[in-house]
Computed example of a mutant assay.
Amino acid sequence: MIESQRNLNEIHFMNWCKVDLNLLKVLAVMLEERSVARCADRLFVSPSAVSHALARLRTMFSDPLFVRSGGAMLPTIRAQSLERSLSLLSTVLNAELEKTRGSQCTTAFHPAESVRDVKIVSPGALELTLVPAVIAILHEQAPNWTLTVEPFERRSYESDLATGRVDFVFSIGGTTPVGALVDGITLWEDELVVLAGPRSDLYDCTDRISTELFLAHRHVYPLPWPISQNYLDVELARRGQHRNIAVSLPSYAALGHLLETTDLVSSLPDRSARALMRSHPDLKLLRLEPARRSELSLLWGIAAAQEPAIAWIRDIIQRAAGELESFPYKRVAGDRRLSRSTVA
């Protein structure tokens, strides 16, 4: 982000009034196409016009910008550093143009008659809760839509959202800034809880256990991201503590069965834990002392928010999240498990 801001400032200090903005358009398309001929085709100009523009750009930035390698024009490090800044500038301009088009458009949006592929980035734990809830609504109300889910990584998705590579990010940890290009809301707050099966000695414990007791057991870790990026493990490492991870899994698919048949335990968000208990009722939920909570945010690109389809699916996600608030659980006499209370 700092590098992009430096590049934007550099372009600004050149004095916009003296810069031919068509040159920046040529640079942006060249960075995508890596070919003078293809760039010329996209801009409806001759290859010699693109070559002339590149010569002026090289003088402007005091850098070759592109070097020929085989049949391609490869960007220099300097050109690569400018690529994201140009992408962000393009996104801002597109957002303003989209606002104008949106205000002029009077065609009603009908989800059931539309066709679209929605791309969402999501932590693995939400495959037990929010993701299937959203899929169910889409299947009913927008049967021609498709949904692609990418695994969440601990990094900024600002560029992905601003350029429309992905439509939404279910974010934990605040690694993507909300600002001129990205907007977002908090969907809910999760509490980190522990699940144990009948073979674990934690099964006979009270509903709350200490961190020390939790760490004394062997763990299953479904891998949403590396341990070095997991907020629980980072917090423990600062105190010189660590989990004894006996099994690492690529997803949550086998977690319930593994906990039921071994003495291993696992920590996961409370909504995901309760969802897993509905298919594995012999599991027991325990709360940690001290409690650890984290927010789940929904992020989207501001430019894309002007599109009726994106605004509609955003409302669908918010509604689905609201219906997944933690259900109240109560103790059943003579039963070690937590059972769901009757809710209207």
Rank of each mutant, 00 (worst) to 15 (best):
Leu213Gln: 09
Gly164Phe: 06
Pro226Thr: 09
Ser200Pro: 08
Tyr203Trp: 14
Pro222Ile: 03
Tyr221Asp: 07
Val169Ile: 07
Pro226Asp: 09
Thr163Gly: 02
Cys205Leu: 07
Val220Gly: 03
Asp160Gly: 04
Thr206Phe: 09
Ile209Tyr: 07
Leu202Trp: 13
Pro198Gly: 12
Pro177Ala: 13
Gln229Trp: 00
Arg165Asp: 13
Val166Tyr: 04
Leu192Asn: 01
Leu181Ile: 08
Asn230Ser: 06
Asp207His: 14
Leu223Asn: 15
His217Tyr: 12
Leu195Cys: 06
Ala180Tyr: 05
Gly197Glu: 08
Arg199Trp: 05
Asp167Phe: 05
Asp204Ser: 14
Gly174Pro: 05
Tyr231Asp: 11
Asp201Gln: 08
Asp183Pro: 04
Thr176Glu: 00
Leu232Val: 14
Leu187Cys: 04
Leu213Ser: 05
Asp207Leu: 13
Gly179Phe: 06
Val194Ala: 09
Leu213Gly: 01
Arg199Gly: 03
Trp225Gly: 06
Leu187Ala: 00
Ala216Phe: 04
Ile172Asn: 00
Ser228Val: 15
Gly179Gln: 08
Asp190Arg: 03
Leu195Glu: 10
Thr176Lys: 00
Trp225Tyr: 15
Pro198Val: 10
Ala196Lys: 04
Glu212Pro: 08
His217Glu: 13
Pro198Glu: 07
Ser210Asn: 11
Tyr203Ser: 00
Val193Thr: 14
Asp167Glu: 07
Phe214Ser: 14
Leu223Val: 13
Ala196Gln: 11
Thr186Ile: 15
Arg218Cys: 09
Ser159Lys: 12
Thr186Cys: 09
Arg218Ser: 13
Asp160Gln: 15
Leu192Lys: 01
Asp160Leu: 12
Ile185Trp: 10
Gly173Lys: 04
Pro224Tyr: 07
Gly179Asp: 10
Cys205Ser: 15
Gly184Arg: 00
